[in-house]
């Protein structure tokens, strides 16, 4: 039955593609969050009229973030090959894709974090300051907890962006569902493969969005 409906689908390939997508997403999301959160906090703090207002530092960070965000991911993937090799020892496969994914998504996530932090009522920061809090205490005790729903929403958007970036991993042999859709489905006209992979990607994106929304609602007290 399945054989006649989906003649070109190789289930072992498909399973491997799912596995690759998950490991690319998992690793790149982890590093993106770990690097992007402090970068976002730094962007926020050094911004105009903020706690550690540093126009020069802010201008510099902001410029780097904008540059990275304006480079199309495909180009980043190619340009970064030497750097990726340096970091992971290979520019091939999942390990070859994670660094460019992280470099592509971190500035994006950092900007979203900065925006989420700016949404925190200034009065709350002032009240915390008035209690004699240090900047570190303000960040960890007030800013991050207050901005948590916004940061979780930002992480959700970032995860979904990573899923779509990872479709281009085929260029360096990264694999994954997106790559399967492009190589077999699109380039070899195997429509059935394309449909199955796209449906799986849709399910993944939908699941990420729902999980993200749940978390946001759970932590919203407004």
């Amino acid at each position: 039955m399945l054989e006649t409906l989906l003649p070109n689908v190789d289930w072992i390939d498909l399973w491997q593609a799912c596995h690759d997508t998950f490991s690319m997403l998992g690793w790149s999301l982890l590093f993106t969050l770990v690097l992007g959160l402090p970068l976002g906090v730094l962007l926020f703090l050094t911004g105009k009229r903020q706690l550690l207002s540093q126009p020069v530092v802010y201008g510099l960070l902001s410029f780097v973030v904008n540059v990275l965000r304006s480079v199309p991911f495909v180009i980043l993937l190619i340009v970064m090959i030497p750097l990726t090799t340096l970091i992971t020892g290979t520019s091939f496969g999942v390990a070859g894709v994670v660094p460019p994914l992280v470099v592509g998504a971190t500035p994006f996530f950092a900007r979203l974090v900065e925006t989420a932090l700016r949404e925190v009522d200034r009065g709350i920061i002032e009240a915390t300051q008035a209690m004699g809090a240090t900047t570190r205490q303000i960040v960890f005790g007030a800013l991050l907890p207050e901005a948590l729903p916004g940061i979780l929403a930002a992480a959700t958007v970032t995860a979904i962006t990573l899923v779509s970036y990872s479709a281009m991993s085929g260029l360096v042999g990264g694999g994954g569902l997106g790559d399967l859709a492009v190589r077999n489905g699109y380039q070899r006209f195997q429509t059935d493969v394309m449909i199955v992979t796209v449906i799986l990607l849709l399910v993944l994106v939908q699941a990420l969005q729902m999980a993200g929304d749940r978390l946001v609602t759970h932590f919203s007290r407004k």
């Binding site: 009522d121 907890p145 207050e146 007290r221």
Partner: peptide, 8 residues
Amino acid sequence: HFNLLSSK
């Protein structure tokens, strides 16, 4: 405007 932490 009270300025309480909404998350606590």
